[in-house]
């Protein structure tokens, strides 16, 4: 198995029965592969089936057609190899921070002693910067802290890949920024393969190596895969000064505003197995208004 196809989505479709008879396809014939250690971000409007794709990757949902292969094996149901960070953090409210992370650790290593489980959980609680809050319950934590616990829980089982379903959309802008920094740091440090869903263009630009553009559903397709032209060592503070930043950003916004709707009608001869890879470059200079002489 090659590293180029660590994760391979092969022709998956999801259809729901129609009240009028027949069925509506949310998406059909979807092909996508990801490299090991790559951070991919899917961006698209609500209802295009992003979450369904993620749930299929997680094994929580089944495709109506096609298969997903991870590390050479077709996935069948959920697995400890693929950790999910839920949008709503999904912490168990009757357990403490330690209890929530330890629940995951002891699920992976069933014969570990309590001390071993605690040690492993502590390591990841420290990693997300929650040292000292181990014995708090989720109700005593802020939204950002809860999501940190969610991240610690996902990482603590050392998964082959992480799946994130709009993990920061319920947070305020400042907390979101801090957590994005943390996630970027952790992913770079651990070389984690990550698949994330987002609505937030800047989040995608900051975090992702590849940004996958998905058209509107029903019948959604992958329109383009954008390679992030920004350097790997980009920082939040000066990312918007990079010469390629606005070219990339404008490209994504243009897609979301207009092309995501018209893509299906305007583009013909599309090969779903080979989604075009695009590397947006410098924005074209444009004169907005001529100064009066």
């Amino acid at each position: 198995m090659s590293n180029d196809k660590f994760i391979s989505i092969e022709g998956i479709a999801k259809r729901y029965p129609n009240p009028a008879g027949g069925s509506t396809a949310v998406f059909e014939d979807l092909w996508l592969s990801m490299k090991r250690g790559e951070f991919s971000c899917v961006i698209g409007h609500s209802g295009c089936g992003k979450t369904t794709v993620l749930n299929i990757l997680a094994g929580l949902d089944e495709p109506s057609e096609g298969a997903v292969i991870v590390d050479g094996q077709a996935i069948e149901g959920p697995s400890l190899d693929r950790a999910v960070i839920f949008q709503s953090h999904a912490l168990l409210p009757w357990r403490t921070v330690m209890g929530n992370v330890a629940f995951a650790v002891s699920s992976k290593w069933r014969n570990w002693k309590a001390e071993q489980v605690r040690e492993q959980a502590q390591k990841f609680i420290d990693l997300v910067g929650l040292t000292g809050s181990e014995h708090k319950r989720p109700s005593e934590l802020s939204g950002g802290m809860k999501q940190r616990v969610g991240i610690a829980r996902a990482l603590s089982i050392t998964p082959k890949m992480m799946l994130m379903d709009e993990p920061f959309s319920a947070l305020d802008a400042l907390t979101r920024g801090t957590l994005q920094d943390e996630v970027r740091r952790i992913c770079l440090e651990t070389g984690q393969t990550t698949f994330m869903i987002t609505h937030d263009v800047d989040e995608a630009i900051y975090l992702a190596d590849k940004i996958i553009l998905m058209t509107n559903g029903p019948g959604a397709v992958l329109a383009e895969i954008l390679e992030n032209p920004l350097p790997k060592n980009r920082a939040r503070i000066d990312i918007h000064r990079h010469p390629h930043y606005y070219g990339l950003r404008n490209h994504i916004i243009d897609f979301l505003v207009s092309r995501s709707k018209t893509f299906a009608q305007t583009v013909t001869g599309r090969d779903p197995r080979h989604v075009p890879v695009v590397r947006p470059a410098l924005p074209e200079p444009a004169i907005i208004n001529e100064p009066a002489a």
Binding site: A58, P78, S79, V84, F86, A90, L92, W94, S107
Partner: peptide, 23 residues
């Protein structure tokens, strides 16, 4: 979502009943 957490952690039916559903 709590059930899904247990599912992604491959928690079996019996353990799930006691550690997630019962509480």
């Amino acid at each position: 979502e709590w059930v899904n957490v247990a599912r992604t952690l491959e928690v079996g039916t019996v353990r799930r009943a006691f550690t997630v559903i019962l509480p």
